[in-house]
Design a protein around this nucleic acid. Structure first.
Length: 871
RNA sequence: GGGGAAUUAGCUCAGUUGGCUAGAGCGUUUGACUGGCAGUCAAAAGGUCGACGGUUCGAUUCCGUUAUUCUCCA
């Protein structure tokens, strides 16, 4: 069975058990501060388990794209070294939300594995929870007795809380779990050691294949467990592992999921997979990481310099690094593999296929930039070796700097050091690393107190589409302390405040009761919970409050959000249908829209886009809002969905003329487009390969922008005495100007020459030195110019110039270089001496120095004193 | 969220106890050589030294704030 068949068999099987098959949610997560990427199949159902949302279907099954780069079982640096860990993987799962429980979950898992996939029963073991005295939970005898009907008791093992009790977090839903393990070792090995002993011991060939979680408790913040009214099933089976088992391989990487990619890498590098451990690891790393990056980009997460985007960048860089070190790649190569991946997975994941070109370009760009990072790192390394000639040991602090600041991989540093028989001070390096870590940890501690619940928490009703103020009560609140801030998070039963989402910033405003008014500074969403941020709490918490959104600000935000939709459609018309939204920011000041497009927009294209948007604004198109319609219907209407939508069978559709703009969107919009007034693009730029960014403004901001520009033109016209053609007249002026400039320069030269000649006449010969100390009516720069000019003309010069500018006295001393060396004269020292007379200080070089002071009366004295330095 | 670094001519970058009236290579323009292409030589143009504020007689250089980018940690 090939991988595609195995996947299909899974979904078909659960469909036959009355499960609804849903799509994989995007791998990139928005609106959850605790998670950047989907790391388990259950993520998209988290709200249901938390009780924030109701389940739409009682039974669900799917294959979910997941990404794991850190965590207790998975460290990015370990992926590829073994044969069964991955960054990106598919998790097959089935769920029950308050429907079936342990009996069916166990029965079906067993049926699917043994009867459908025909896996040898003799190789399987299962584990059940042994109970925990501290928590006061008994052993999972239910699971045990269900298992006994399928498998002999000596193949059932007890697991501790660590392995067999699943918790989502410190608090929240949790429960015992039951794992199915499989032994894929050879017969000879199995004879030597009983597979039972190796379960959960890290043997790569005795592995967990399916985890069945039975969610039946809720853990409170004091650590107590209470039974849940509705019990859920949450299962997860690693797709790649399953393929390995069914295809009779010893490594995930030997399955058809990876082999095509690996053989392409082998071809390009001229090495054979299986020949050498190090190059094998490199090929596995690259094959794995390619999948992670490609899917992340397809889901809308581009590599960038922070947060989720940086995680993606690092995964890619790790792949480049392995290719560079172990396979000898010196040129970008990973982007060439994209086509192989798309050929293989593009059918089941159409998002890969539709964005193939973008994925390729983005990866290529990133590869180039990392290869550059490597070469600057090598340069720095070589400079260090040269300037520490023969030291034979590289300072830990230097290695750390190379790593921490310039991103040069530590293992490359070690490799390069080894090649020239140098050592690296790793103790010092690790010390630096440890310091960095503790510093970060300290800064990251957000001290959130427990939620204080005033009323049972239900879903907060959002009324902000229709109302800007509402009577609300507080459901719960908590105090949060960060390093330099302290504030409260408040949850209402309903709210007109829009929580930051989909690029639109959160509303601000206030809530009040009994004449007491409290500002709401921001509104955020956490796990579907709308959180209002305020600095102060009312005394009477149980009162009914009037919660009101800052109306003006909201209107401006709506202008920009609707304009974003109009722009999106306009771009598709002007540039083509390949334009896809890649990011968006909407606030009360401006809108920022990132989209896929491969070349710089021309001035005409920008103009055309603006014209189209403004035309739509003038048409005063009325908002058509379909608040709760099935996603299938929305798609039929042609709504643009972004990065694939999260599961949920009802969505909100926003249309401004169905033929023009129709999008799935949760944001707030104007009632009719004329409110936007005017739309103006202020910049168009590149933010990544194949991605462009437009920044634009609307309404009074746009009006202001235009009137400022017009004002400049009016002023110009005024200044130029209203010519017919401003451009022509300015051009003429510029020409004239440069002509005059040259004349002035000549005149100034003449004048300076005059001044210079006048001064030259005053020069006194003292010994063989040409001495002059004079006051001039120049400023510091003029004096400097003059001094340099004099130096060029007069040999053996000793010149002191004094001047007064802006009421302050200044001195400049210029001494010919030959005098400096022959007579050991030092303008710097001299000027400091002279400056005493004007209550000042100064300095400079031996041949030229300046000083400034406060006492202009002293100028004459200073000039008189100058002659003393000649002897 | 925290730490480090970078930002200098159209491009790639030099420029350390703060003072050499800011430099190089490539590119651009002009001129000469040549039948043309190309090339060689010569010359020129081009810089608010990211922005703002401070210290100083003087800041590209030191300090602070900010923007953008890079990078490591959480």
């Amino acid at each position: 069975m090939n991988a595609a068949d195995i996947r299909k068999t899974f979904t078909d099987f659960f469909a036959s058990k009355n499960h609804t098959i849903v799509h994989s949610a995007p791998m990139v997560i928005k609106n959850d501060p605790t998670l950047m990427f989907t790391n388990a199949g259950m993520n998209q159902f988290k709200d249901i388990f938390l009780g924030n949302t109701h389940a739409k279907y009682p039974r669900i099954a799917n294959s979910q794209k997941c990404l794991r780069v850190s965590g207790k079982h998975n460290d990015l640096e370990e992926v590829g070294r073994d044969t069964y860990h991955h960054t990106m993987f598919e998790m097959l799962g089935n769920w029950s939300f308050g429907d079936y429980f342990k009996k069916e979950a166990i029965e079906w898992a067993w049926e699917l594995l043994t009867e459908v996939y025909k896996i040898d029963k003799d190789r399987m073991y299962v584990t059940v929870f042994e109970g925990d005295k501290k928590d006061g939970i008994p052993a999972d005898t239910d699971a045990l007795s269900f298992w006994k009907t399928h498998i002999s008791e000596d193949r059932i093992l007890y697991g501790s809380k660590k392995d067999n009790f699943w918790e989502m977090g410190d608090t929240g839903p949790c429960g015992p779990c039951s794992e199915i393990h499989i032994d894929i070792r050879s017969a000879a090995e199995r004879k030597k050691i009983d597979g039972k002993i190796l379960v959960n011991k890290g043997d790569p060939h005795v592995i967990e294949i399916w985890n069945l979680v039975f969610i039946e408790f809720n853990r409170l913040s004091d650590g107590k467990l209470v039974p849940l009214p509705a019990k859920h099933v949450d299962t997860g089976m690693g797709f790649e592992r399953l393929c390995m088992v069914i295809q009779g391989k010893k490594s995930n990487y030997d399955t058809d999921v990876f082999q095509q990619i690996i053989s392409e890498i082998a071809k390009q590098s001229g090495k054979k997979y299986g020949d050498d451990l190090k190059s094998d690891i490199a090929m596995r790393v690259i094959a794995d990481h390619l999948r992670a990056i490609a899917f992340a980009i397809a889901d809308g997460q581009l590599p960038s310099n922070n947060k989720a985007g940086y995680v993606i960048r690092r995964i890619l860089r790790r792949a480049v690094r392995y290719g560079y070190t172990f396979l000898g790649f010196r040129e970008p190569f990973i982007h060439e593999l994209v086509q192989v991946l798309v050929k293989q997975m593009g059918d089941f994941f159409p998002e890969l296929k539709s964005q193939q070109e973008l994925i390729r370009k983005v990866i290529a760009e990133e590869e180039i930039s990392f290869l550059k990072t490597l070469s600057t790192g090598i340069q720095r390394f070589e400079n260090y070796i040269e300037s520490n000639n023969g030291k034979k040991i590289i300072d830990g602090s230097f290695v750390f700097e190379l790593f921490d600041t310039f991103g040069f991989p530590i293992d490359l540093t070690q490799l390069m050091a080894k090649e020239i028989w140098w050592n690296v001070d790793m103790t010092e390096f690790n010390k630096n690393m440890e310091m960095q870590k503790t510093r970060s940890r300290q800064a990251a501690t957000v001290d959130a107190e427990d939620w204080i619940e005033l009323k049972p928490v239900t879903e907060t009703e959002f009324v902000g589409y229709d109302l800007l103020s509402a009577d609300v009560v507080i459901l719960k609140y908590r105090k949060v302390k960060t390093k330099d801030k302290e504030f409260f998070q408040v949850v209402f039963d309903k709210t007109p405040f829009y929580a930051e989402s989909g690029g639109q910033i959160g509303d601000s405003g206030y809530f009040e009761s009994n004449g007491e008014k409290f500002s709401i500074d921001d509104t955020k969403k956490e796990n579907n919970l709308t959180i209002h941020i305020t600095k102060k709490l009312p005394k009477e918490l149980t009162a009914t409050f009037k919660a009101a959104v800052d109306k003006e600000k909201r209107l401006l935000i709506e202008n920009n959000h609707t304009a974003t939709h109009l722009l999106h459609s306009a771009l598709k018309q002007v540039l083509g249908t390949h334009v896809e939204q890649k990011g968006s920011l909407v606030d009360d000041e401006r809108l920022r829209f990132d989209f896929s497009h491969f070349s710089k927009m021309t001035d005409e294209e920008i103009l055309k886009t603006e014209q189209l948007v403004n035309e739509k604004i003038r048409q005063n198109i009325v908002l058509e809002e379909l608040r709760d319609i099935p996603i299938s219907e929305a798609k039929k209407m042609g709504a643009m969905a972004l990065f694939g939508e999260k599961y949920g069978d009802h969505v909100r559709v926003i249309a401004f003329d169905r033929k023009y703009s129709i999008e799935l969107c949760g944001g707030t919009h104007v009632h009719a487009t004329r409110q936007i007034g005017f739309f103006k693009i202020v910049s168009e730029s590149a933010i990544a390969a194949g991605i462009r960014r437009i920044e634009a403004i609307t309404a009074d901001k746009a009006e202001q922008f235009i009137s400022n520009k017009l004002d400049i033109i009016m002023q110009l016209q005024d200044i130029l005495k209203s010519p017919k053609d401003i451009v022509k007249s300015v051009t003429q002026l510029l020409e004239q100007n440069s002509r005059l400039q040259k004349q002035i320069e000549e005149l100034q030269k003449e004048k300076a020459l005059g001044l210079k000649n006048e001064l030259i006449k005053k020069i006194k010969k003292i010994g063989n030195i040409n001495f002059l100390a004079e006051q001039v009516t120049l400023d510091a720069v003029g004096a400097k110019d003059l001094a340099y000019a004099m130096k060029n003309d007069i040999e053996d010069l000793f010149l002191v110039l004094a001047y007064e500018s802006e009421g302050k006295p200044g001195l400049s001393v210029m001494i010919s270089e030959n005098l400096v060396s022959e007579k050991k004269l030092d303008a710097s020292k001299i000027v400091r001496e002279l400056a005493k007379e004007i209550n000042g200080g100064g300095g400079g070089q031996p041949f030229f120095a300046t000083a400034g002071g406060k006492n202009a009366e002293g100028i004459e004295k200073a000039l008189n004193k100058a002659v003393e330095f000649l002897t």
